[in-house]
Design a protein around this nucleic acid. Structure first.
Lengths: 210, 210
DNA sequence: CCAGGATACATAGCAGTGCTATAACTTGCG
DNA sequence: CGCAAGTTATAGCACTGCTATGTATCCTGG
């Protein structure tokens, strides 16, 4: 045991500790610098380079962590017999996650192009596509409605609303009020019956915010 | 004249030169640092502090410049006798501006909460609201349609699509293909006739990209 | 059980960052 | 003309991400 250090037998633990520490500092709005991150874990600056290859690598890992938390949250949304409701419920979980971890959310889409494992990020969209597909199969959406493109429109619109609120451009009330209205417009455009769509959407909104 | 310096009689010129230089470096994807900015103008680092109060102040001025360029571009969109067409034309100009100056666009919405003069930024949304108001007055949108809220939905949705493309998450084709579809959904939801709406939207899309 | 090689480590130091204190300079007004 | 106000250049501060170097730890093979 070298002077003044804890055992630290398993390398992956250091890796996880650094990512968690960075995410925590991000949540506390503290500046996430190389030295400040390692200071909380007891490790030295070199740990960041051996495990992540540098500061950009650490950020990549943090974004990865963010997408995994999002995926875990979306996974808690249990499918019902109303697929349109489920799409909105996924949106509510998405918003709840973004509001709960605003700085992590912003970091996720700051340089989203490069990630260690994009499959996790794509998984979130896949859940949306699957729900849209069920809606089409159930006759809620028109047969010529492409579930993936609808999911893309829905996600992009919600993402825009979310980022504008998280950056402080728009107040949170706008997000809560306009999201369901946009959802209804997109789903009716996709072929759903307006009255039935409104019932499904209103049943899954608003999200449970902290 | 002090050693090795140009006349430099008017202070506002230095201010403008620094902002323009920063915007240029942003467009060239060069790192915008204090020393690199002043190096191009011949001024010293202190100029940034006397004119902007520091680096964050410079960024604020750059964002301001970005919103003014956007406003100028939106102002070139001449109103026609089809207000729904005009809303989409404004969106096309918005996208063209964002694609032409992607890094400036990202900087604009990075910390959009603080600006020297928010009225310029609000002006862009106001043009959208005005067009929506004309659409309602012309009977295209329902009487109970709030033009401001519709403009908010339209802008937020387009902003989400735009940012996801600019960050490289989605390919540009998605933006070009999904924007008009979202627009139609929102406008039909606002009360427009589907067929007539489609004609108006398709007449103003796609934007002229560089 | 114990070498030996690969890996991860701590330390010190590099160039570069935003920023500030000080002093010299230029300008505008009485 | 002379003085006060405002701007500038210079030097230096603490800090950043990063690298070079030598050391300690772990895992494997005999």
């Amino acid at each position: 045991m070298y002077p003044g250090q804890v055992p630290k037998t398993a390398p992956p633990e250091v890796r996880a500790a650094l990512v968690e520490r960075a995410a925590t500092m991000l949540a506390r709005r503290e500046p996430v610098t190389l030295r400040s991150v390692v200071a909380g874990t007891g490790a030295s600056t070199m740990a960041v380079y051996t495990h992540f290859g540098g500061m950009p690598g650490l950020w990549r890992a943090v974004r990865q962590e963010g997408f995994e938390r999002l995926a875990a949250r979306l996974a808690t949304v249990a499918p019902t017999d109303d697929p349109v409701h489920d799409v909105v419920a996924l949106g509510a979980a998405y918003v709840a996650n973004a509001v709960a971890h605003p700085h992590l959310y912003r970091a996720m889409f700051d340089e989203a192009a490069d990630l260690d494992d994009r499959s996790v990020a794509d998984g979130g969209l896949a859940a949306l596509v699957a729900a849209a597909e069920r809606a089409r199969a159930a006759g809620r959406f028109a047969p010529d409605c492409d579930p993936e493109q609808l999911a893309l429109r829905y996600w992009a619109s919600g993402h825009g609303l979310t980022t504008l609120v998280l950056t402080g451009v728009l107040p949170r009330e706008v997000l809560l009020a306009q999201w369901p209205r946009i959802a209804k417009a997109l789903f009716v455009d996709a072929g759903d019956d307006p009255a039935r769509c409104a019932r499904s959407v209103d049943a899954a909104w608003p999200p449970h915010l902290p």
